[in-house]
């Protein structure tokens, strides 16, 4: 089976000289969800920004057969939808409908088609009733759903979810995980939330200092890198 995403020897250095990615090889196949774990600053977000052409480093990236380069940017952005960690950054139009239609309009669709797609995407995320509302009036969970709808309206083949459960309460997290489970696209899930990864991901990779240090099942990676927040309580000694 051909990989939807094929990354070879990806390297990237920020202007201040910080090496963010140092020879990353990665593949994503149709229908699968891959969780990306790693400490803050390990290169996870820098990596996913390359998949949409928002950053361009050394090495080669192919998305659905298209090399990521300046000539292919619009085609690549049509294929890869990125849901950012902070939905506030992603919602910038006056109404929910206009915000969700922003991507389809940029793809060159007519107003009618863009509106139709936007309404369909809002229905998919359970936000049909909010089309005319202003994004800043929504709750954090609703904002996240609208941000997801804005990406789904572009009908991408791959979804990149950067810390999707951050800022949400447990019921909001659960409902969002159920939504992601129902979406047929292949997904990359950048997260610290092991429970979310357990629920969604088929496999996981672990980033450290800009490299992939391990790859396997979610349980395997969690155990190997001690990537759990369980605190082992020591018995307290009494002073009698």
């Amino acid at each position: 089976m051909d990989a939807l995403i094929d990354v070879r020897s990806l390297c990237f250095r920020y202007d201040d000289g910080t090496v963010a990615l140092d020879g990353v090889d990665f593949q994503l196949y149709p229908g699968e969800t891959v969780a990306i774990f790693g400490a803050n600053g390990s290169g996870k977000t820098t990596f996913v920004l390359h998949l949409n052409g928002l950053l361009m480093g050394g090495g080669a990236i192919t998305i659905c057969g298209n090399a990521v380069n300046k000539q292919n940017l619009s085609r690549v952005r049509e294929k890869v939808g990125v849901v950012f960690q902070d939905s506030e950054m992603q919602l910038f139009m006056p109404t929910v409908l206009e915000d969700v239609a922003f991507g389809p309009l940029n793809l060159g669709l007519s107003r009618e088609e863009a509106s139709e797609r936007a309404l369909e995407a809002l229905k998919q995320v359970g936000m049909s009733g909010c089309a005319a509302r202003a994004p800043y009036h929504l709750s954090a969970g609703e904002k996240k759903r609208v941000a997801v709808a804005g990406i789904l309206a572009m009908r991408p083949e791959i979804l990149v979810l950067d810390e999707p459960t951050t800022f949400l309460d447990p019921p909001g997290q659960r409902s969002l995980i159920e939504l992601f489970e129902s979406l047929p696209q292949a997904k990359i899930l950048v997260t610290h939330d092991v429970e979310c990864a357990r629920a969604l991901a088929h496999r996981a990779v672990f980033f450290e200092k800009g490299r992939i240090r391990g790859e396997g099942s979610v349980e395997d990676i969690v155990a190997r890198f001690n990537w759990d927040r369980t605190v082992i309580r020591r018995p307290t000694s009494s002073r009698h």
Partner: peptide
């Protein structure tokens, strides 16, 4: 960050 989000959606 907002500009990146706009670019990611084909702006």
């Amino acid at each position: 960050a907002i500009h990146l989000a706009m670019l990611a959606r084909g702006f």
